[in-house]
Design a binder for these strands. Structure first.
Lengths: 167, 167
DNA sequence: TTAAACTTTCAATAATTATTGAAAGTTTGT
DNA sequence: ACAAACTTTCAATAATTATTGAAAGTTTAA
């Protein structure tokens, strides 16, 4: 496999994988492109490489910036904006985990808490609803706590966690 | 909040949350309904409760069975099939984690391995592609190993893992 | 202050994904 | 062997989500 083929394969795989880490295809592809680029890229270059429109590029870059994964940089002597992504995979994983917790897990915890707190009217079905949603609430909170614990452990968190598990 | 409202809220929240654990809305809603049901439900009952068609119910039940989350049960004196879901949240989490690893993470690991193994032609861009995809490969493998370690630890794995982390 | 260079917005459209419903298929009791 | 009871399949359709492109908006250099 040559460079170009490997590059295309990586970008398209990462793109279709977006759903795994909760973002859309174009967003994931832009991130992938920046991730293997040796220098900051302009909007023009991103559009050309990925064959996507200006509007699409602009919107998805904004989302990546909102996530904290991509930053604007200035290039000496250039008027247009250039973009770079976080290059350290562990830092990247930390950011993604933190954002998903905030955006998706926390809201669910809130609703599970509400639902599992309804008044027990003594009926079997109410008891079952309370019991099951309480269990889910507890599980979700525990997982979120684990994620946040990991995430706040800046240095080499993955490696550290693995060491703990495998010892 | 009364029973019916809590039930509806739980089912719709769990449904729209499907994407978080990689399944579609109807699938997640069927699972949610079974999860808080006090008895096995027939296809008829599921259709009625969720207001979805027979075809949709049939297809999504099949997928849930493929995932290993739902099982058919026979009810004495009844000709039609009834369905139940795994009621233990930890077991449920184990199954989901295992399936997602198999369906989504493993294939990505394979591709990252291929891409990161291309011949180094000495150019800067090739070096960068190899370096970055290698890092991603390593991270993904590590995470997958952690998931599988957790997943094979049948009893109370969540609690155990938390104890390790917080001590 | 102007106009060229550049970015953002958003209504229209395309692409994708989910859902329906009726026909075909299967199983079971007699 | 038949037909009633039930389930599955799948082409058509609906709903959702992503993408385009051109107009509006912004910034900068002279």
């Amino acid at each position: 496999m040559q460079y170009q083929e490997a590059k295309d394969k990586f970008i398209s795989t990462w793109g279709s994988l977006g759903s795994l880490w909760g973002i859309n295809k174009a967003m994931a592809q832009i991130q992938a492109l920046l991730f293997i680029s040796t220098k900051p890229l302009s909007m023009e270059e991103i559009m050309d490489e990925l064959k996507i429109s200006r509007g699409n590029t602009s919107m998805n870059l904004r989302q990546l910036i909102d996530w904290g994964i991509v930053s604007k940089t200035i290039v000496a002597g250039e008027r247009k904006e250039f973009f770079t992504t976080e290059k350290d995979v562990q830092e990247l994983a930390r950011i993604v985990a933190k954002e998903r917790s905030r955006r998706e897990i926390q809201p669910v915890i809130k609703i599970l808490d509400e639902v599992s707190s309804i008044k027990d009217d003594g009926s079997e079905k109410t008891k079952e609803l309370i019991k099951q949603t309480k269990a889910l609430h507890e599980l979700t909170e525990t997982m979120d706590a684990v994620i946040n614990k990991l995430v706040n452990q800046k240095q080499n968190w993955i490696t550290k966690s693995v060491l703990k598990f495998f010892k």
